[in-house]
């Protein structure tokens, strides 16, 4: 169907209802976050000034614009807490993404090489944990990583360690939590591109004298790069703003940016600063999100 054709009323509704919903509840909220990040903190309800008073006409709008300030951003720029917390989030997200790639690739490869009739079942098995309650799966790791928990009991029984190591409230626990919860996001796109791989190319490379690791490095890996990109973006973007995992499994030394935002909002009730943190986070994530969207839309149009 071409765009030039005239649409019926029903078709217009099909386009405009979801469109309007997302505009009102997804796009407009961002503009409001942006606006509040430029407000002052106030002991009032709502806890910020200025409040846009349209009933006062032009005078109200002028007063509103005069009242805007960059104080919250200045605070974020000057207080090392925010910058450290941002840096820590990016570091944890980037390293987790790398770990996820290293762990997810062999799994995706294994599924792609399995007999074809098993593929659908194996894919469901990878997806299933993702939908069985995220909070609960993190909670399960709180059980496992306790001082006297099953992991330490196992390590002691096998004589690997003498003293039970501390797992909870460390970065290691956060990495375990992120890798565990995001693994399906990494495996599925990798599988999707490995499954399309033409095996005759691998045979050709082998016939031409490539060793197995050379075949992997020079043929398999480059051909699966769309899957690597999609998987890395799908894991990295939400991991930067992760709240539940560092809050339940991590320590209290340097909070991740999601925890900082949560504390500003629920603890300090400083809405303008929380909004400014959110804006900084969105700016940080805009490029990866656009890359992901570009890739996804390309796939849609090809199909």
């Amino acid at each position: 169907m071409t765009g030039s054709q005239k649409r019926t009323f029903a078709q217009k509704l099909v386009i405009w209802i979801p469109y309007a919903w997302l505009l009102v509840f997804f796009l407009v909220p961002f503009l409001i976050v942006l606006k509040i990040s430029l407000s002052h903190f106030a002991l009032a309800r709502p806890p910020y000034t200025p409040v846009l008073d349209l009933s006062a006409g032009w005078h109200g709008i002028a007063a509103f614009i005069a009242g805007l300030s960059f104080d919250s951003y200045a605070l974020i720029g000057s207080d090392p807490l925010y910058l450290l917390s941002l840096a820590k989030s990016v570091e944890i997200a980037a390293f987790s993404t790398l770990l996820l790639l290293v762990i997810g690739y062999p799994i995706a490869y294994g599924i792609a090489r399995a007999p074809r009739r098993l593929h659908a079942a194996l894919v469901v098995l990878v997806m299933l944990p993702f939908f069985t309650a995220f909070l609960i799966r993190i909670y399960a790791w709180m059980d496992i990583l306790q001082r006297d928990g099953p992991l330490n009991q196992l390590l002691m029984a096998l004589d690997i360690v003498r003293e039970p190591p501390v797992w909870l409230a460390t970065d290691t626990a956060v990495y375990i939590g992120i890798v565990y919860s995001y693994l399906p996001f990494m495996v599925l796109p990798l599988y999707a591109s490995l499954e399309k791989l033409d095996e005759s190319l691998l045979e050709a490379a082998a016939d031409l004298g490539c060793r197995r690791w050379q075949v992997f490095w020079r043929v398999t890996l480059p051909l699966s790069s769309p899957g690597v990109r999609a998987g890395a973006l799908l894991c990295f973007i939400p991991a930067v703003g992760e709240f539940v995992i560092p809050d339940l499994l991590g320590g209290s030394q340097t909070p991740m940016i999601g925890q900082t935002l949560w504390t500003e909002f629920f603890g300090n009730k400083d809405w303008p600063t929380a909004a400014a943190v959110a804006v900084v986070l969105v700016i940080l994530l805009v490029t990866p999100i656009l890359l992901l969207q570009f890739q996804a839309m390309q796939a849609t149009d090809r199909g």
Binding site: P238, G241, F243, W262, A274, A278, V282
Partner: peptide, 9 residues
């Protein structure tokens, strides 16, 4: 993909 915390806020 946007972190939940931003959507929520």
């Amino acid at each position: 993909v946007l972190p939940d915390i931003i959507t929520g806020l």
